[in-house]
Amino acid sequence: MLTNSTIVRFIVLSKHRLSSIAAPQMAARQLEWLFLTPQRTSRPEREQQWLQGAVSERITWRDAQQLTLYRWGNTGPKVLLMHGFSGRASQLACYAAPLVAKGFQVLAFDAPAHGESDGVQTSLPEFADALLHVGARLGPLHACIAHSNGAAATTLALSRGLDCARTVLLAAPEDLQGYLQQIGRWLGFTQRAIWACQRRIEARYAVPFSELRGALLAPRLRVPALLIHDQEDQVVPISEGQRLAEAWPHAELLVTQGLGHSRLLRDEHIIERVQRFICATLPQPACA
């Protein structure tokens, strides 16, 4: 028996398929809008608790656009948290208290068009530009902890000079083109419309998707990296994390089971493992 959700999905797929055949350029514009427009959702109670004690401020980015920055602690090596697409800074705020207790200063920001920051649409290149801007403002970073699209943006930002001593990438995607293909097919768009959409996005941000491949950027990176990926991630397949780890000269891949794409962020064992990696190069008793 067909459920309401199955019927709705069939209607959506049929609509996108027909529009792709009848008007592929119009369908490409529609897919572009869907692909670049993040969803803003309210913070659950746990994230509101994690934000307690944080000092927030608004910083100016490009074209007077404002980004919201959060800060925990006032001294110590700086650790920056970077969320993913349709995420928010508070998703990674579970790292703040443990790291502050270890003597770190923890910072996070809502990416363009996310959380409390300005904007309606954004994509990977803009994530990376914003990360470079915030990183330059904050000064040298001891570490960056990033999730999903934020992890891909961190890889790109490191290749463009982000001053960061080590990085932790959680559920990192490696191939933006593959992700667009996956989303486009899932929504029912034809291959012709998907390729047209990619060309539109490449022109919009003045960078071809081929230059954003993590496996092509990683070989020239010398920043030690800890990659953590779950075998059951339904959003970013583990094969992407494996390709990225194989290409990164100083990378370690930790494979988990049963945490999926998002639970990975707040698992206590993962938080402890990340702390050990971040503390590895600091003199004792800084991280005792």
Rank of each mutant, 00 (worst) to 15 (best):
Q121V: 13
F277T: 08
F10G: 09
R160C: 03
A89E: 03
Q231T: 15
H133F: 04
A152Q: 06
G119S: 06
L132F: 00
E246P: 00
L176P: 04
F189E: 01
T167N: 00
G150E: 07
Q234S: 14
L221D: 06
F10A: 14
R204N: 06
S56T: 15
I11T: 07
P224E: 06
H114Q: 02
L2N: 11
D175C: 02
D110W: 00
R185Y: 08
L282Q: 10
L156G: 04
S159G: 15
A251K: 08
V255Q: 10
F277I: 05
G135F: 07
C197L: 00
A23S: 06
H83C: 11
G119I: 08
L226Y: 12
I183A: 06
A247H: 12
G103Y: 05
G214T: 08
L254S: 12
P208Y: 00
A22M: 04
A130I: 04
P44H: 05
M1T: 10
R204Y: 01
V8T: 13
Q231M: 10
E32F: 07
V255E: 13
L132P: 00
A93D: 01
N74A: 12
Q284H: 12
A54W: 07
S159N: 14
S148L: 07
G135P: 04
S239V: 14
L176V: 09
S5L: 14
E268C: 04
A157S: 01
A111K: 02
S262Y: 12
A157R: 00
G214Y: 08
V12H: 10
V207L: 08
L67H: 03
I59T: 05
T60F: 05
R266F: 02
E57T: 14
T122V: 15
S239T: 15
H114I: 12
L254D: 10
T37P: 03
I194P: 00
A96D: 02
